[in-house]
Design a binder for these strands. Structure first.
Lengths: 214, 214
DNA sequence: TGTTATACTTAACATCGTTAAGCGAAATGA
DNA sequence: TCATTTCGCTTAACGATGTTAAGTATAACA
């Protein structure tokens, strides 16, 4: 069955060619500004050919993002496995997340900055790499709580709060490049450090402040 | 010149009619899922009529957002003028911001969650209500620094960090409605409280952590 | 009453994502 | 080796989008 194998290899090659072309265009010009026809043109196939390899445009994008986010998760797992103190790990995972987002703004946008709900894509995205990226953060937070560095808060809640911080600064820097940012790098540090400090033990009184309900 | 006046009044009325129809549809179904034709249909005019009153679809959306965000800013100014302690003000302004975003997700999305850069819309957005909403946050942060509640950090940086937090939780809650959130309300509080605590004085040692550079 | 300006519409353009139908070449069976 | 089936891809088309150009009534004005 050599011929069958070869055909399959060729199919896989074309699939990759499509992915590569699409990634190039998406990264360069953004998802919405790239048409299926342009992708097809780039690889000298008819537009409809793409639909033989991917369900639709969103599906194509999804696979590209998964590919890219795998790198983020891999790096995160490496950090998590290190033998440093948990607090440093949390911050480094956070930084890794932020820097990844800034390095791949178009990928980041589509996985974290657009609402993809009530479509049936629901479960697909739940099991995605984006989700696993959050789980990574969560693991490191749990370590901090277990070792007594963070105070005894709900790990899920604390992770969500930290996620809010890292996602917040990442998405703002992406969405508002014209904003007169002062000290981007230091702001990133400040977000991470402040949030961690706020979650840490020792400091009980944080001013006059009860939870500050309106 | 009564006739001239009347005509002008009628023009203004139609303009508002367009805005109202568009807002309804945008809020209900989201900007991208609403076509100019549908807006026109709703008010029984031809699609092209809209272009006599607004430059294009984005322009239409912009005016709607400004309208809505004015409310946020007004409320924020009211809070800022209150005679409570600065820390409470920061938190209430933060909460106000978050709650506003969750109440008007479609407006929030277009002003804060999409990248509107290198178009010439640049300056327009810089002077927008969204921008003023940030300035509000900044004012309250400056108060906290001046009164010694927050430690001596750059006010711009601290504001950006706080903004990251509130924007982060807001945009995530909007973009990821299917995420298995635990304790949304408490998470909001935790973000605000932790960030403020981290920016506050008293606590020097926040664990073993230097800025955590990778 | 005739002219001009105003408010709006009809028709069309270029483009989009996507589907249905068809075509030629390669693989398969005899 | 020849007929048939399968595979990979394309051509053509559908219905929709935002937007523009050209045209048409009606109202205002002289």
């Amino acid at each position: 069955m050599t011929s069958r194998d070869r055909r399959e290899r060729e199919k896989e090659a074309l699939r990759q060619e499509i992915l590569d072309a699409a990634r190039d265009l998406f990264v360069q010009e953004g998802y919405e500004n790239v048409s299926m026809r342009r992708i097809a043109e780039k690889i000298d196939y008819s537009p409809t050919t793409i639909y033989l390899y991917f369900e639709d445009k969103a599906d194509l994008l999804f696979h590209i993002c998964e590919e890219t986010f795998t790198k983020l998760v891999t790096k995160g797992e490496k950090i998590l496995a290190e033998k440093t103190d948990p607090l440093t790990k949390v911050k480094r995972i956070g930084r890794n997340y932020i820097e990844f987002g800034l390095k791949h703004p178009n990928h980041y946008k589509v996985t974290f900055m657009v609402q993809h709900s009530h479509d049936e894509l629901k479960e697909r995205y739940e099991n995605s790499m984006g989700h696993r990226a959050f789980e990574l953060l969560r693991s490191s937070v749990e370590e901090c709580i277990k070792t007594g560095i963070f105070r005894k808060v709900d790990p899920g809640m604390a992770s969500q709060a930290l996620w809010a911080g890292v996602h917040g600064i990442t998405s703002l820097l992406i969405a508002k490049p014209l904003f007169p940012w002062v000290e981007k790098q230091k702001t990133i540090d400040l977000v991470l450090d402040s949030l961690c400090a706020g979650l840490s033990k020792d400091k009980k009184k944080s001013g006059a402040a009860k939870p500050a309900r309106a």
